[in-house]
Write a protein that binds this DNA or RNA. Structure first.
Lengths: 218, 218
DNA sequence: TAGATTGTTAATCGATTAACAATC
DNA sequence: TAGATTGTTAATCGATTAACAATC
């Protein structure tokens, strides 16, 4: 994925976390917050938080801090959460079903228009009120319904084929849960969620910690 | 999470990817590979790959490259994948079920010993041959069975409480899928999988791309 | 031996942190 | 006004890349 913006991915990946914590503050009726307080909550340094926010604008006020509601709304806009994105989910195993049923995404504007699977027993059913189609219809459906984001929850063996259908149909982004990388044109946004990589990081850290403890005993 | 090792997390998080691609090469009966070839496959630079591997040892041979089988085995050991980890999964919604049914983790040595939920309709059932217990029994079960890793798939509202039970029971690591951060002692390894943060990154990039295209038109 | 490719040092690049003037 | 806290520049730190001697 090529990018032209000068904003680094490190900054972009912190924004959702700011957004989440500001949502919590908002829910607790907190009206203002300083970068120092945000630092305490999020674990990032106050300096980094001010630096990050200033990539997008001067949302604060000297001597006061940030207005929680305003900053929340600003970050929402920066993240593009003021729009509706049409999605499809491909692969209706447990993971696909989990995502189809997770209403938080829908509330955030990511609205599944259809689900897809190869299994004839699933085709025609509705999950969370969304119909399951034959994956054969995927490309046409994406094209005819102007789908923005394709969500891949298939096994590894199918993900490249599915990705190509999605791209031919015209999606602009792919959220890939299959444990494999996919090869698509550079102008398609691809976000991988490789669960095994996350799990293997845990086992690495467990092993590392054991070794540190062992070496300290001597 | 405090760390004592000098190996940076940036390096650690690339290891599972090397491992995965080496597995593919092995499956295709490839016997040797150069850092240049690994670079082509993984997208990291050859220099970075050599640098990364040399944090752990000199696994290659000048003029030859790396023996695929050996390197695969070495990274497996570095990642701690030569051990068995006992796990429990808490929260048996679709996501918990997806993980309980995903045999790849079990094959990699992460073996669920029990599942937990609050729902009386689920308690006593078996999923993928693993029994669902009442979450009330969680702490005792973890303690009596020397569980290494707790996997949290509950809603946000329950995750902190569950995390505390797991820690009191004695887990050494937590894999957290609840859309919230958890607060536990610094010596517990916590790996968060925040799906919304991943999804919001996509919408950010979609919006950014639109803006770049728009600005190019003028 | 000649060619290839590692291991490793040095150079560069980018991200984070510190500092402080601006200003509410 | 005095105190607080931002916005922003400069300094530091760490990670990535380049280069090349070592050596298979």
């Amino acid at each position: 994925m090529e990018r032209f913006s000068s904003i680094s991915m490190a900054v972009v990946r912190r924004l959702p976390k700011y957004y989440r914590y500001l949502g919590e503050l908002k829910k607790n009726d907190v009206k203002r917050v300083s970068s120092q307080e945000l630092s305490r909550i999020t674990g990032f340094t106050a300096s980094q938080i001010r630096q990050d926010l200033n990539c997008f604008g001067g949302f604060g006020q000297q001597g006061y801090g940030y207005n929680v509601d305003d900053l929340y709304q600003n970050i929402s806009n920066i993240l593009g959460l003021n729009k509706i994105y049409k999605t499809v989910i491909v692969g209706m195993g447990n993971l696909g079903q989990a995502i189809a049923n997770y209403s938080f995404f829908e509330k955030s504007g990511f609205v599944p228009q259809a689900l897809f699977d190869v299994n004839p027993k699933l085709i025609g059913l509705k999950i969370n009120d969304i119909r399951v189609h034959d994956v054969e219809e995927l490309e046409d459906f994406v094209r005819e319904n102007n789908i923005d984001i394709g969500i891949i929850c298939t096994p590894k063996s199918q993900c490249q084929k599915v990705a190509e259908s999605l791209v031919r149909g015209g999606v602009r982004a792919i959220w890939n849960f299959a444990p494999s990388d996919i090869n698509v044109s550079d102008d398609i946004i691809v976000e991988n969620v490789h669960l095994s990589e996350s799990l293997f990081t845990i086992s690495y850290l467990l092993k590392e910690k054991e070794e540190v403890l062992k070496s300290k005993k001597f």
